[in-house]
Design a protein around this nucleic acid. Structure first.
Length: 482
RNA sequence: CGGGGCGUAGCGUAGCCUGGCUAACGCGCAUGCUUUGGGAGCAUGAGAUCCCGGGUUCGAAUCCCGGCGCCCCGACCA
């Protein structure tokens, strides 16, 4: 198997080991997930990529609704003054504003910013809808596009425009809002791990890594096969920062005016990039069955018209048996070998080959994308065997990714050891930490790594901070990040 | 914004230094025949504002001036 791969089953993409960023771009484009567009920094999401996004989006939408949230739609154009009201928020996002200054052929009185995120718009609108504690909580979500004027862009990972969902909620008490932050982070963990088969670390961000305007942020972080961390979802606690800035108040149970506590949380099309980078190999994409646009690709093999008819006939029953599976039959006028390579590049988990040799035995040949293992399966068994194999592949991808992360995560207790690790290895480092920003600066200067998430309080026996030696308060994961 | 590179057919390039016949090659595309269990072969064909504007010249893809766009490398970010 190894030499087959070396001999270049897929010739169109650069080697993952030799040039990871180049490999990533090749895979995204050649697998037809997305492509560059006429506009710098903006991508075209092609049907195969959009379908993959839908297969992530739809279950996530379900998880969001399951927890009591409702979908809204708010304007994409936000008056500049709205964004100027929360000091830290402005400071964080202003460099990334894309602004509309003309409309109807005239200069606008006030520029409109293409939404980079909607905290300000939603707070401005909900001011009018929230009057009493009886109106709370308000649990909103919206699916939309946002714009952030990034300098360096990468398909799916960082583009000027991207798709996401942003949830925004308002609560009577701080405790309730903080529970919400954790609840939604947990939903994100489920999407990442149970659907995308990417294991994640979940926890709080350090102050330097938090969202502009938040009291604190939490995130899920996955490890890509180059050992770098990718933030795959965030959940923020605002306290009353935004409601104060927008003078959004309600009358409480004892008839006093109060500011509600708010949260926001988001998952974007970046998740698609995570799937590519967490599971792909030199042959291209490798998609978890639960989100794969095509779960089973059937390649008919025939020479004559009569053989073609025989195969077509046999397939009718197969397609009936697999009606709950996303199956596609590739009848294109290409040679089988070409199709094998193309569907491997596109990451389809299972391939069924059906030709005269198989038909003679009443079987088909089933091949796993995971390891190219082939097996013969009687035609009549497919309805049972295929769903079982898909389940098994879903689990195997998750396990493989988790084992990879565990193999590339070390616990260290000194700055020197940490510097040496990032000098010679890839992956995550877990250390005790005192929480000081200066320590993050020190580590970033020497390694380019940053804190990813705080995993929890340090143990009862107070250890020294790995960076500066002061008493540690938490366990933190460090990594080089996208 | 700093440093480097590039704009020639849908894509990738050659040609440019040293100006000159109908702008070349590969992939892809179309049609036909032969093929089909790991990226097929042959034949025929379509496809170009040589990034844009100006200049030099008998003559510009090529030389000169100006502009535009894109990519890569360094500071921000889902």
């Amino acid at each position: 198997m190894a030499d087959e791969r070396d001999s270049g089953f897929v010739k169109e993409i650069r080697k993952q080991s030799a040039d990871f960023p180049g490999w990533y771009t090749d895979v995204v484009r050649k697998a037809q997930l997305a492509d560059y567009s006429p506009v710098r920094g903006c991508m075209v999401i092609r049907p195969y990529g959009y379908s993959l996004w839908e297969n992530i989006r739809d279950p996530l939408d379900g998880l969001i609704k399951e927890t009591g949230h409702e979908n809204w739609y708010f304007p994409a154009l936000i008056p500049l003054s709205f964004l100027m009201k929360e000091a830290e928020h402005v400071e964080g996002f202003q460099p990334e504003f894309a602004m509309v200054t003309r409309g109807g052929g005239k200069e606008l009185e006030e520029p409109l910013v293409l939404r980079p995120t909607s905290e300000t718009m939603i707070a401005s609108v909900l001011r009018d809808y929230i009057q009493s504690y009886r109106d709370l909580p308000v649990l909103t979500n919206q699916w939309n596009n946002v714009f952030r004027w990034e300098l360096r862009t990468r398909l799916f990972l960082r583009t000027l425009e991207f798709l996401w969902q942003e949830g925004h909620t308002f609560h009577e008490t701080a405790a309730e809002a903080e529970e919400e932050v954790v609840r939604m982070l947990e939903q994100y963990r489920r999407i990442a791990e149970e659907w995308c088969a990417v294991p994640v670390l979940a926890g709080r961000k350090s102050d330097t890594e938090k969202f502009a305007g938040a009291q604190y942020s939490m995130s899920i972080e996955g490890m890509m096969v180059d050992g770098k961390a990718l933030q795959m979802g965030t959940s923020h606690y605002f306290g009353d920062n935004f409601t104060r800035a927008y003078d959004l108040t309600f009358t409480g149970r004892t008839n006093e005016r109060q500011y509600p506590y708010s949260t926001s949380w988001g998952v974007s099309t970046r998740m698609v990039g995570a799937v590519v980078m967490a599971h792909g190999d030199d042959s291209g994409l490798q998609l978890p069955p639960r989100i794969a646009p095509v779960q089973v690709i059937i390649i008919p093999i025939f020479r004559s018209d009569s053989e073609r008819v025989q195969i077509d006939t046999a397939l009718q029953q197969v397609l009936t048996d697999l009606e709950d599976i996303r199956v596609k039959v590739d009848w294109r006028d290409e040679r089988p070998g070409f199709k094998f390579n193309e569907w491997e590049l596109k990451g389809v988990p299972l391939r069924i080959e059906i030709g005269p040799r198989d038909l003679a035995k009443g079987e088909v040949t089933v091949v796993r994308r995971l390891n190219r293992a082939k097996q013969n399966v009687p035609l009549g068994d497919l309805g049972v065997t295929v769903p079982a194999m898909l389940e098994e592949i879903q689990a195997a991808l998750f396990t493989r990714a988790r084992e990879f992360r565990e193999a590339h995560t070390v616990r260290l207790d000194s700055l020197e050891a940490l510097v040496k690790f990032f000098d010679t290895s890839i992956g995550f480092v877990v250390t005790p930490w005192c929480g000081r920003t200066e320590d993050e600066r020190t580590v970033k200067d020497r390694t380019t790594a940053t804190t990813r998430v705080i995993l929890g309080a340090s143990g009862p026996a107070a250890q020294p901070c790995a960076i500066c030696g002061r008493p540690a308060s938490v366990e933190v994961a460090w990594g080089k990040a996208y």
